[in-house]
Amino acid sequence: MSEITFKERLSVEQVEEANDLAPKFQEDGLIPVVTTDYTSGELLMHGYMNEEAFKKTIELSEAVYYSRSRKTLWHKGATSGLTQIVKEMRIDDDQDCVWLRVEVQGNGASCHVGYRSCFYRSVPTGDAFFEKNGELAFEESEKVFDPKEVYGDAPNPTKL
């Protein structure tokens, strides 16, 4: 397979109107990624890619992210079997955000906590925020898998 390369960003017109893939990584070398279910459109997760993860995702047609907490590449599903097969990969107008539309293997979960989506709670807004004392509401009532069975006693990758 040929080496995947990105074009140099030369002009606004080139970035916004041409066919050149010239992603803009943030100062920390990362680009945000929003991931949704290919069929339903459900928002599954938000993550980041560095240049290597971006290229690996293109190469494998499977989601590869960069874990900011572990400071390493994270091939989604390598441990859990919940691989995200990329059915479509899009980039926004100024090429500083990626949208993955994926088919999740295994039981369909994308959240390391065990829920299908990482967005399993809602935040009340307006007057409801104060009426509910700002408490989050669970929108998913059952976990798809038990994280301890899948990951063992590995430390939670989320930093507090």
Rank of each mutant, 00 (worst) to 15 (best):
G47F: 04
L21V: 13
D94A: 10
K87M: 14
V64C: 10
C97G: 11
H75S: 11
K71L: 08
A78P: 06
M89S: 11
M49H: 00
Y65Q: 12
D92L: 05
D37C: 10
P32G: 05
S40Y: 13
K76H: 07
T57F: 01
G47S: 13
I58A: 08
D93G: 14
G77D: 14
K24R: 12
R70F: 03
G47A: 15
G81Y: 08
G77T: 06
N50T: 04
E59P: 06
K24Y: 10
N50M: 09
Y38F: 15
E62W: 02
A22D: 12
G81F: 08
P32E: 12
D96N: 15
D94W: 08
E27F: 00
E52R: 15
E62T: 13
L73T: 03
K55H: 09
L43V: 09
V86G: 05
L60G: 00
I85H: 14
S40N: 12
N19F: 02
S69C: 06
L60S: 09
M49D: 03
K71I: 07
W74G: 00
K71W: 02
K87D: 12
M89V: 09
Q26R: 10
V33G: 04
Y48Q: 04
E42C: 03
K56S: 13
T57S: 15
Q95V: 10
K71D: 15
W74T: 01
L43G: 01
L30T: 11
M89K: 13
L60C: 03
E88K: 05
V86L: 09
E42H: 01
L44P: 01
E27C: 02
Q26Y: 07
E52C: 10
D20N: 10
T35F: 00
E42L: 04
G29C: 07
D37L: 05
T57H: 02
K55V: 08
Q84E: 09
E42D: 13
I85K: 15
L82V: 00
L30F: 05
K56N: 15
G41D: 12
T72G: 13
L73H: 04
E88P: 06
Q84F: 00
S69K: 04
N19V: 07
K55E: 01
V33D: 00
D93A: 14
L82W: 01
L21N: 02
C97H: 07
E88R: 05
D96V: 14
Q26H: 13
K56A: 13
L60T: 12
L73P: 09
H75Q: 13
L82T: 01
T72S: 15
V33T: 08
A22K: 05
I31Q: 07
H75Y: 11
L43H: 12
E27Y: 04
M45W: 07
W74F: 09
I85M: 05
H75L: 05
S80L: 04
R68C: 05
Q26A: 14
T39W: 00
K87Q: 14
T35S: 13
D93N: 09
S80N: 07
M49E: 04
K76L: 11
